[in-house]
Nucleic acid binder design. Structure first.
Length: 206
DNA sequence: AATGTACACAACCGCAACACG
DNA sequence: ACGTGTTGCGGTTGTGTACAT
């Protein structure tokens, strides 16, 4: 087994889980590096954080995905691309890792979607940053990642500019009905990313 | 029963952004 | 303004297991 940076890649033991859980119950989340040092865990802080967020946290739902969850993920992915944390935020009890795994192992095959290749089309993480990204992208048509909006002569009103990476799928066209279908159930929330997307679609439409 | 293979999921990595002194 | 430590993200890879041969 490979050992890097003094840490092994291995599954968490019951004891390690217990130590981590006790620490979070006492000290709260955060300071993951300190936890690893103080409790003598041979894990890096990032590993501790991931274990808590993806598995030990009481808010994490375990077990099979329901059809409703699958459907939600598919629709969100259609709209947002590989923005797993944002998608996971709208699938109650599921983490970004779970959603990502679900997509990669089940849903992409089910839909016959090829895995993205080539240069990544990574969008900044936070909502506000993403909103700025969208704004910037459409103010600067020469941007390497985002094509300028085409003229709307074919019923296309929006583009999935957040796509998973390859040029082939990064700008998947969304028809009017696609967009409305996707957006209708999403805009009950107040996510600024989706608000930005809504503005984009209005811009396209107008 | 032993071995090989495919699949699902857990865990790690690199990077970028953020927080704070 | 800068440096350092921390957090969060998406992509990738290792591990365990079910199934086939």
């Amino acid at each position: 087994m490979e050992v890097r940076n003094g840490y092994k890649k291995r599954l968490w033991t019951v004891d390690e889980d217990r130590i981590l859980t006790e620490y979070v119950q006492l000290q709260g989340k955060g300071k993951w590096n300190r936890l690893a040092r103080e409790r003598g865990l041979r894990r890096c802080g990032k590993s501790c954080r991931l274990r808590w967020m993806n598995y030990l946290s009481p808010s994490v739902k375990h077990g099979d995905f329901s059809e409703e969850e699958d459907d939600l993920i598919i629709r969100l992915h259609n709209l947002l691309g590989n923005r797993w944390s944002l998608i996971a935020g709208r699938v109650p009890g599921r983490t970004d890792n779970q959603v990502k795994n679900r997509w990669n192992t089940h849903l992409s095959k089910k839909l016959g979607v090829s895995q993205p290749k080539g240069p990544k089309c990574k969008v900044s993480a936070t909502s506000s940053r993403f909103s700025r990204h969208l704004e910037h992208s459409f103010n600067t048509p020469s941007s390497s990642n985002v094509k300028p909006p085409p003229s709307s002569t074919d019923g296309t009103i929006g583009y999935n500019v957040l796509g998973g990476g390859s040029d082939d799928n990064a700008f998947e066209e969304l028809t009017m009905s696609d967009c409305y279908q996707n957006l209708a159930f999403l805009f009950s929330g107040d996510d600024p990313d989706l608000y930005a997307m809504n503005n984009l679609l209005e811009f396209q439409d107008g």
